[in-house]
Amino acid sequence: MLIDCPWCGPRSEREFRCGGEGHIVRPETPDAVDDTVWADYLFYRDNPKGLGYERWLHRFGCGRWFNVVRSTTDHRLAAVYGMSDPRPELGGDR
């Protein structure tokens, strides 16, 4: 893959690390949630076939994390955006 780092531009996938699904919300007060909710946060994932949200780290580069929308079927990146940017809507081919 060629990944378009928001800070460094397009670079080889070798320089990056995938941090898994994006926009996973850590419970505000973990003590207040039950084991099921906690397990959902820890382990359960959408794992979409097609477009999905992920976060990536430019590990051998600027060291910054960023969000992407990427297809897991053809590996193409549909969007790259900052960690605090709003989540874009996914296209139809999920």
């Binding site: 941090g19 976060r55 994390w65």
Partner: peptide
Amino acid sequence: AEILEEWLQCEWP
């Protein structure tokens, strides 16, 4: 070093 940055950048910016 990577995990510290991940928490800082992703969870507690």
